[in-house]
Nucleic acid binder design. Structure first.
Lengths: 136, 136
DNA sequence: GGATTACTTTAAAACCATTCTAAACCGATT
DNA sequence: AATCGGTTTAGAATGGTTTTAAAGTAATCC
């Protein structure tokens, strides 16, 4: 109940009513430390806090946050929709065993010589995924 | 029924029995022209040929071909598993409206300065996806 | 403040791509 | 022809996500 004022502000600015549920999710997401979340995982975190929330609500929330530009949608991984609190342009390692994503430091990779787009198309975003797995 | 000999050869070499179904799918896939297919789309193509095949069979086929190294699995798009007949390292445009993938000429992009992997991990593959949409 | 209105949450059902199951079906080999 | 292993298949099951319709909550207006 402490730093909620900031989250309420963010929600209002995004044109979203600061409901109990959206504040709860916001509190979990906007901690300052970037993370990659699925609806499922988020529900677990909420349960661990002793609260409960319908999965549908969590999906609603995530989609609304995304639409409001508070979250980025990442390529689905293992049939699961993932959202990223890191809004800036960056790339990912994908652990194929667990589906876990890890940010790649933007400076660590440089992509040069962008190809010309198909006629009549515009680019929305671009993402490099490096699939990795634990060494045996 | 003409160039089936070649496909039968490919299947045998991959350790797969050249069944009617696998030959049929092979004929559609290994035309020389690279393509991106989903099970669903493949079933449509088969129907257009006046034949029919259980979806489960098509999935089996695609997974077996993948395991045998005849197909590449591409990042799922719109919750649909996509396979790519282009086995070489390359990147994709993704039409977010339709889910359609288009190969990016390998020479058109250069990725430099690969980031160091997390400790204890090895890289399997890497793919750049450029999300595009038709201009209004 | 109380009533009204619009938006939200929810449980449960529906959805849909994919996988599983278990029975029927080859196809090669004796 | 009989057999044996892999294969196909329809239909059921699965699992993540979305929809539905009813109950709940927040904002607005008087």
């Amino acid at each position: 109940m402490s730093g909620d004022a900031k989250i309420i502000e963010v929600l209002k600015d995004a044109g979203l009513r600061p409901t109990k549920q959206r504040i709860c999710v916001g509190r979990l997401l906007f901690t300052g430390k970037h993370q990659h979340v699925s609806a499922d995982r988020l529900q677990l975190q909420i349960r661990e806090l002793g609260q409960k929330m319908a999965l549908a609500t969590i999906y609603n929330c995530l989609h609304q946050f995304h639409k409001a530009g508070l979250l980025k949608k990442v390529n689905a991984v293992n049939d699961v929709i993932m959202f990223d609190t890191n809004l800036s342009y960056h790339h990912h390692f994908l652990n194929v065993d667990t589906g876990e994503l890890t940010d790649i430091n933007k400076e660590a990779v440089s992509i040069a010589g962008l190809p010309s787009l198909p006629d009549g198309f515009e680019a929305l975003s671009m993402e490099l995924t490096i699939r990795v797995k634990p060494q045996i």
